[in-house]
Design a protein around this nucleic acid. Structure first.
Lengths: 190, 190
DNA sequence: GGGTTTATTGAGCGATCACTCAAGTATATA
DNA sequence: TATATACTTGAGTGATCGCTCAATAAACCC
């Protein structure tokens, strides 16, 4: 009986994610989204409910894609090498709409107003940190690195450095590749 | 002949800086500013010209205050110790309106739209980096650290780590003090 | 093809945005 | 005290914000 939508939902979410990633939450208006997704307001709200709901979907997509890339890196090169390659990968990817981390950006933008999306972004960051922790744990089990530091402490620091790298990468006058290489090199000393 | 304004301009800039620092550029409306500064729109525009002009003044104030704090730290404890104490100082200061760096926050928020304030924030970040570089140079001259790394490379990395620290400090579930201590400790190994 | 169901359309809602300006008020000099 | 010169006031500007909804169009089952 029904009529099918003439769009691919996942494709729309991906395009919205890229737009939000580039322009941020406040910087992306519904006009922008309607233009990018080729949707009139009625269709938009029928499909997603609200701007914030779509932003939440975009965050999920962002986080899961990142986690998958890291997982693939680990399967190919092992845990330590994955952690070493990840910073450069993130910073050099020419397809990504921005260098900065969408999660930290959202957190910074919306934390002060206690917007639910800030808390959502933080939860995704926690999951990322847990994934890093797993990799450090695994690297210690394989004796790729020593066990003199706790893996959760290593993960916390690694994530912090990564966030700094990605802020730096957003700047014009900074050689982010060099910083990425330093972060990778530091891991060899563990 | 004239009538004097019944406010202290520097005080207004400071209060505006704190509000912008907490809420960001888009997150701070003129209504917010009028309430915080106790000014009606007419007075506001007579005094500052525009929201962006005041934001620029707030950035200057933010940057020069930070530079002064670091300078004082150096005069009291020497260059290396200043660099070691600075991260914890920035993260633990209970008076600061937010933990995150206002410069990097502004950069992340406005870079994509090529807003002039993003470039201004970046220039202040460059000045910060230069100040770090001076301190590393001085620390090498005093033989507090070795000369095996170039001071500009050390400064670039130090700033990146500091930016990461300050993003992490904005999160609820992260012990930023611990990360700050690690950054300080790493400097001892130079 | 008829009837049902859902998607699409786009004008337009109230609220808020940064900002303006004419009128009123206080302070200085003459 | 009179006048000139600011500063202050606050209603109101057009533009844009996220969002709604009644009307229309398309795809399915029978």
């Amino acid at each position: 009986m029904p009529r099918k939508p003439n769009y691919n939902r996942d494709d729309l979410i991906e395009r919205a994610r890229d737009l939000f990633w580039r322009q941020g939450w406040a910087g992306t208006s519904l006009k922008n989204l309607e233009a990018e997704l080729n949707m009139k307001p009625g269709s938009f709200y029928a499909a997603f409910g609200s701007k914030d709901a779509l932003f939440a979907l975009a965050l999920e997509k962002y986080a899961s894609d990142g986690a998958n890339r890291l997982r693939q890196l680990k399967e190919r090169h092992g845990p330590l090498c994955a952690l070493q390659r990840f910073p450069a990968m993130v910073v050099n990817n020419p397809e990504s709409p921005a260098k900065a981390c969408m999660l930290s950006r959202t957190l910074l933008e919306l934390q002060a107003s206690e917007h639910p999306l800030a808390e959502l972004a933080n939860q995704h960051l926690l999951k990322m940190e847990a994934q890093f922790c797993e990799l450090f744990t695994h690297a210690q089990a394989l004796e790729e690195i020593s066990t003199k530091h706790r893996p959760d402490v290593l993960a916390r620091r690694y994530q912090s450095d990564l966030l700094g790298l990605r802020v730096s990468a957003e700047r014009n006058d900074v050689d982010a590749g060099a910083i990425a290489a330093e972060i990778a090199h530091d891991l060899s000393a563990l």
